[in-house]
Design a protein around this nucleic acid. Sequence first.
DNA 1: CTGTTCTCCTGTGGGC
DNA 2: TGCCCACAGGAGAACA
Length: 275
Amino acid sequence: MPELPEVETTRRMLAPTLEQACISHMLVRRRDLRWPIPEGLESTLQNQTLRRLQRRAKYLLFEFEAGTMIWHLGMSGNLRLFAHTQLPPAQRHDHVEVHFTHGWVMRYRDPRRFGAVLWHQGPPENHALLRNLGPEPWALPHDGLWLQQQLARRQQAIKLAIMDQHLITGMGNIYANEALFSAGIHPQQPARDLRLDQIVRLQQCMSSTLDAALKAGGSSLRDFIQPTGEPGYFQMNYHVYGRGGLPCRQCQQPLQEIRLGGRTTVFCLQCQQQL
DNA sequence: CTGTTCTCCTGTGGGC
DNA sequence: TGCCCACAGGAGAACA
């Protein structure tokens, strides 16, 4: 299930084939995703040319002359490309297909249906879901001062703060765990207590963790596959995620596992500064 | 505002 | 083999 590296991997695989391509038709098998797919979207998109495929946070933005199709993959969604002559029969959780005149088909599979396909006229950044999103880690000023100012008013655990998409976008549960390990910061440290040097290091670690995952084509646990059908490989490199009780790769102490905000949190007591 | 809990849904893996 | 429970990559909604 996609975090930012998986969504960006998806965008990069789709864009070269689909940008400037024209939709012949769209097929919706189930409308009841997280929100219903708007009635009439199929006819709105018919004969529309995809101008650009962009991404904002974990949202894919399919930009057309008539408006923008906003697509979120939820927890279990993936988008795959098929040549129309080699399109396998649709299975139970294949909810949407977009067929293009040049013979390619983009198919959406999402077993849990937490994903969303929406339509927005006008600049997508004005959409209610996108309007209040924070910056991506790469875009943060390197001096750490902006983030320090934001964290100063939060006493919640730092892991919860960096997973709040309205503060910073792109850190899901896997990469939040990994970035905090990499920065040597305890996930339960109150956000407002981080020193500036910790904040600067955390920013660097968030960026480098996402970069490394992106280079590996994202992570594949159960559902995520690239639009080509190939999995990502970053899960080979996890230091903490999914490794509770196993020895720390740096100090060999057993990793701790707790729950924070309902999400499994794994860290090393020795390598990640205690409260 | 900030912060917490609940919720949507299906599949899977562990324990018995 | 089957049954039951906990948990899974997200994040808005509702509430304190």
